[in-house]
Design a protein around this nucleic acid. Sequence first.
DNA 1: CGACGTGTTGATCTCTCTCAATTAGAGTGG
DNA 2: CCACTCTAATTGAGAGAGATCAACACGTCG
Lengths: 245, 245
Amino acid sequence: MEFVSCQACPLRALPLFVEASGSELALIESLKKEQVVAHAGQCIVHEGQADLPLYTLLQGWAFRFKTLSDGRRQILNFLLPGDVIGVQQHMGGVAACGVQALSDVLLCVFRSDALWELHRMAPALGFGVTWLAAHEESMAGDALLSVGRRSAEERIASLLIVMFKRVAALLPDAGAQGVPFLLTQQHIADALGLSLAHTHRTLRKLEKRGLHRIEAGRLHLLDVKLLPQFADLYGDGKPARRPLL
Amino acid sequence: MEFVSCQACPLRALPLFVEASGSELALIESLKKEQVVAHAGQCIVHEGQADLPLYTLLQGWAFRFKTLSDGRRQILNFLLPGDVIGVQQHMGGVAACGVQALSDVLLCVFRSDALWELHRMAPALGFGVTWLAAHEESMAGDALLSVGRRSAEERIASLLIVMFKRVAALLPDAGAQGVPFLLTQQHIADALGLSLAHTHRTLRKLEKRGLHRIEAGRLHLLDVKLLPQFADLYGDGKPARRPLL
DNA sequence: CGACGTGTTGATCTCTCTCAATTAGAGTGG
DNA sequence: CCACTCTAATTGAGAGAGATCAACACGTCG
């Protein structure tokens, strides 16, 4: 894995950063401490760990998770290139959740005062970070809605669709030939609050119904937009109904 | 409901704002647009609503929620005095979730450019907002863990304990005589992804086991710290185990 | 007084979990 | 090249937590 300059950082694709000025880029570059590699399966951040830096994921996949004392695990979300790791942990003191690499991973490590410097020296970038944090919370809300109120079938379909779109957005061909897919059924189960066995059976059922195909580490979404049964899941947001009151 | 000055704003109790300087307070004051009242049950923000301002909850309770097209509802979290409403919605354009008042509520409404001005004029406050957003995400993660991996009993116990602590923290006597509790069983059910019937039965069971008592709109937590069975739930964070790897 | 919201309960149903076992594929060492 | 190991996928059987549906009680309110 090679060095990635801030010029080429996947974060730059984000709406809030595309217009970063030269001086802002220079600032970011000066706050970057180093670049490290973690191997598949390795823990990047441990739950409860203190003094952790701010990271950015340059290459590879990872996920954030929490565990209960008896081992039950909940995956909070999956991290793709361009995602920031640890804004929340970084600020609280100790990490509220762990982060584990799904594949070999290349990380950009920032100085521990990076977040504050960013705010102080470049308010526009600080604003961008706030936007990022707010956006993450919104995603967390979607996940909560899924886990709390959707059936296993809906949850899995929804996850596949969202992941497909996220990964496709990073590819030049937008996923025309399917997208790389590194999750095991266990990961899917832990992200959706389901058991492994039921996740497997549901995945099978959806495949049979024509939603998707997973093959050789690639996810192919077939005709989502055509299947009315999945319409609710495809849109970006939830199709809010009426205010209930 | 009377006027609340920024001096007396419940937000000032937050660690990140206690040390606000005079000029910072003046800035905040200048960004405040007005103060409005909403009545119990009223929707403060509709799902999908555009152009919504940034609010702060001065008095009363509310909650954020999302709904599916068939009416299923998931409550994302409950809002108490001092909570900020809509950092995420505000930034995205349209509201990703709705907000409804649980009681009569007093809101502080900010100018629509408040967030940006805060970042631009007072980086320390901007940083505080980022911290807030990150903290919210962390809470969302806790909720996801509960809904995804805990049993109904654990979820409810956990919610009661967390709410008790939050409300107590706002009271002078720290909840010695119980704390006001405005949630109906339906709210609890919608927050935890449970059915109303099962929520009721579980609530009963916990009460019988001595966890709590709800009476006349007040929640009394009995001897949580003494009950080993709830130990996992009482601590602030989750008692993370080992890295699984 | 009737309507409504909330709490309460019983009966029944089913989705999802748990436990257990088997298979398949990749990697490793001899 | 083969035995050995490990992970991930797969499947079946049985159990159970929690959902659904349907009443009923009670207090508030117009």
